[in-house]
């Protein structure tokens, strides 16, 4: 059974950026044929997983406030299935690394990630988590969480707007939709290795470079 393009309800496929990454992943997964029954089961599981991503309550600085705003009345991520934030890493599916990670915090973050139960996903929120952001030059700041844990989606911004966060989370949903649970090769690398090709969420329209 062929893996289909991941779609999000009532949002056209083309509206999403960075479809190429996902398509290359699909191509790779489709190299190996899957049984129809197993494929259908995989679809069901992916549907369940992608629509029920519970985030860990984790925030270190400014982005955390925006993350709270995404959960509050106006933006309300419960609509999309990110129903609750769990305080215990054991019960969370997703860690939104919202804020700067410092040298002292790095082992703690790694430990939190290790404590989470599979399947687990990481979203790097904001400049600090992606690359160190404005604090890149500091002696005590980790320049990008991808140095210690594998990141699935990057959401740039300082802090990103709630819309950007929702968009990033939807990108993660799309990524979760192209996994194979039974048999076949999973696009997520083996334990311990970094997964290949994270999705980049772009705030700016693609043609921004052409205009200026």
């Amino acid at each position: 059974m062929e893996m289909k393009k991941p779609t999000i309800k009532s949002i056209p496929y083309e509206e999403f950026k960075d479809n190429e990454t996902l398509e290359s992943l699909i191509k790779e997964l489709n190299k190996e044929r899957t049984n129809v029954v197993v494929g259908a089961l995989d679809d069901l599981i992916n549907w369940g997983r992608s629509n029920s991503l519970w985030s860990l309550t984790f925030a270190t600085s400014c982005c955390g406030i925006e993350f709270m705003a995404v959960g509050a009345a106006r933006y309300d991520f419960a609509r999309f299935g990110f129903e609750v934030t769990r305080n215990s890493p054991r019960q969370a599916d997703l860690i939104m690394v919202a804020g700067t990670i410092t040298h002292k915090m790095a082992p703690v973050l790694k430990r939190l990630y290790d404590q989470m139960a599979d399947p687990k996903y990481v979203v790097a929120v904001g400049g600090c988590a992606i690359s160190g952001g404005p604090f890149k030059g500091s002696y005590h700041v980790l320049n990008g969480v991808d140095k210690i844990i594998p990141v699935d989606v990057y959401i740039p911004g300082c802090p990103p707007r709630p819309e950007a966060m929702l968009y990033g989370m939807m990108q993660l949903q799309r990524k979760v939709k192209i996994e194979k649970y039974f048999g076949g090769k999973n696009h997520r690398a083996k334990k311990g290795e970094m997964p290949n090709e994270p999705i980049i969420v772009t705030n700016a329209p693609i043609d921004i470079n052409e205009n200026c």
Binding site: G48, A73, R79, G81
Partner: peptide, 22 residues
């Protein structure tokens, strides 16, 4: 003052099933 689950199935009716599968 929120909407709650809306996207999975009509009015989010299938949301809990998704959670259960997960």
């Amino acid at each position: 003052c929120r909407l709650g689950p809306m996207r999975v199935g009509p009015w989010g009716l299938l949301q809990v099933f998704a959670d259960v599968f997960k």
